[in-house]
Write a protein that binds this DNA or RNA. Structure first.
Lengths: 345, 345
DNA sequence: TCCCGGTGTCGTCGACCCATCATAGGAATG
DNA sequence: CATTCCTATGATGGGTCGACGACACCGGGA
């Protein structure tokens, strides 16, 4: 390449990277020769020399057997999409990597040169995260990490505020006894949300009505929904913490002959758009994964490039309650929901 | 590192990689020192020297503004998940890269050292693909590429057979006039499916009833569905080529007071699970994206490692018709729906 | 018994991968 | 001769690979 253009290797490098002080003539000449030859500088060599690969790892904690769940849940999917997009805008690409597992996926981690890593819902003592931080590779977490887990920065929703707001909304719609469908896992999201619920109950003087189940068991949710509505102290409103809870609760309500929203108000936390078209449409709490994904990437790249000195390392983002029919008992002819609902009673 | 263990750099390399001929004592000694120091060989240096990065590019052709759609459609999402998983199993990781766009995303492509690339639904003259192939980097395509687009290998469904089978199924269920909701784009999937439909019509002597619309316009689908059912020669069965067609057609049928499946049989091509719980459940044609994703990766890695000499470069995979209520008019209490393959593929 | 080539095992050397960066060098100019 | 301005030189990053050197042990011939 250098020979073809009749200049030195350095000149080629400088010309292509816009560095050094070269006359425009040389620069464009080198560029045209490179173009003609289809020459591309070796990414590997550049990475070796500069120490920057332009690659960011992305990993999602998984529960089941499959090593990857980043497409299975709408939250992860949208978060990953936004993150990929934001990274691209700043010249980085995302590498999908497996969360730690017993199969020791370490090798694959050390086989790729990363400038930084995004971790979604890290487990409390993720060895990969520890290892990366020890190596000086910044890690930004989506979801508040355990205190024992060192990360460069993290982003999370204000789950407490979200739950409080949503419970207030239900109460305003006339709910007297609000139930909670939650997980029996100890992850931060579940813990914070449940605590916020209990505190809210205490404040307004309501006895908590809680059913919990192993959140990663797809069938257990339906059973727990059923249990909740079968209780003697049956709630007249329910908040489901997980994505499938909406349909599960709707099905359970149908089984018990409860009309939504007349007999039962419903809200669930979900990013899925199907709840806009269920019968009736269900009010959802959106965690705004897109915004989170974008923020996580900005924080991470700032850390990588050392350009975000002043930015906070802990960022709490607001959520968004999308109010639909299922949580509005009052006249509510002001329904701003789907204009085309076939008005089936 | 080499100094700490009291051996040469080469010995460290050999010990850690299990190469060379070293006594077990030396090997384990080096390993323990490396462990203690937390030493990891530089991925960049290894890549530079060996020419292998262990990285595979993944890109999805996009239509809209957003540079990434790999999570938006169930097909892409599942395909990507399976591919990631399969790659991991063989020691590779996937890098998400943008499809070519006017914003010239070339730079990001040449900034990462790839061993190979998976392209989902490549456009007819994708310059990135051409460039990669010219550089000797294997490219495997999901979806039959245009003849002008050179790829190492491709995998696709047998769309013609799928359409024939599904039309036969509808006819067996009593359909007299089957309509088609299709796209007016020229991509291979649409073209093959539409042609197969027309040929089938000719064979059985039915006049084609076709409505087409720009498939990437989310609203146009509903309108086209409406148009189809408003025609004077209204079909008594419809096949929708795209994922949202099922709900669109269902909604349209409701507006016209058509009962499904009594007045209208419905099938659509989709990977979405929501069609199992619609009212009524809708028969879907699954393209088995998981199986495709896995196959694509196997072919690609075989090409990279030069180990798949005998394997065909063009692989056509069967589809799966998941029969549900919407396409069974007769007594049909004998629901013979697909025996629920545990998605092992 | 002594010396020497033969055989084999371990471990090290040096080249190499290919850009990038700091600095030295050379030409043109004042 | 000093100053600019441009370009070449050489070191550098950190492994990997082919080839060679060091060393121990063996048996055979002198």
């Amino acid at each position: 390449m250098a020979a073809a253009a009749g200049v030195s290797i350095t000149t080629v490098s400088d010309a292509l990277n816009g560095k050094g002080r070269l006359p425009e003539a040389t620069r464009s000449h080198v560029r045209s020769v490179a173009e003609r030859l289809g020459y591309r500088p070796s990414a590997a060599a550049r990475t070796l020399r500069t120490g920057k690969s332009g690659l960011i790892g992305l990993t999602v904690t998984t529960y089941g057997e499959e090593p990857f769940t980043f497409t299975e849940f709408a939250y992860f999917a949208e978060m990953a999409r936004a993150a990929t997009s934001a990274a691209l805008a700043r010249g980085y690409a995302l590498v999908i990597l497996p969360a730690t597992s017993r199969h020791s996926a370490f090798d694959i981690w050390s086989n790729v040169a990363l400038d930084g890593t995004v971790v979604i819902d890290p487990s409390d003592h993720d060895p990969v995260v520890t290892e990366l931080m020890r190596s000086g590779i910044p890690v930004v977490s989506d979801g508040r990490p355990a205190a024992s887990l060192p990360v460069t920065a993290w982003v999370d929703n204000d789950h407490e505020a979200a739950v409080r707001g949503l419970l207030d909304h239900l109460a305003e719609s006339g709910a007297r006894r609000i139930g909670l469908l939650t997980g029996n896992t100890t992850d931060t999201y579940t813990r914070l949300s449940t605590t916020a619920y209990l505190q809210w109950c205490e404040r307004v003087g309501q006895d908590p009505v809680v059913e919990s189940y192993p959140a990663h068991d797809p069938c257990a949710g339906a059973v727990a929904a059923d249990r909740l509505l079968a209780r003697p102290d049956r709630p007249d409103a329910v908040y489901g913490l997980f994505d499938p809870n909406g349909t599960d609760l709707l099905a359970a309500a149908r089984r018990y002959g409860l009309r939504v929203p007349d007999d039962l108000l419903l809200v669930c936390c979900s990013e899925s758009t199907v709840y806009a078209t269920t019968e009736p449409p269900i009010t959802t709490l959106s965690l705004k994964p897109g915004r989170i994904g974008n923020t996580v990437i900005q924080l991470l790249i700032d850390a990588i490039e050392g350009s975000g000195g002043g930015r906070p390392v802990e960022q709490v983002m607001p959520t968004d309650l999308i109010v639909r029919t299922s949580s509005q008992r009052l006249p509510s002819r002001t329904t701003v929901s789907a204009p085309r609902s076939p008005a089936a009673d």
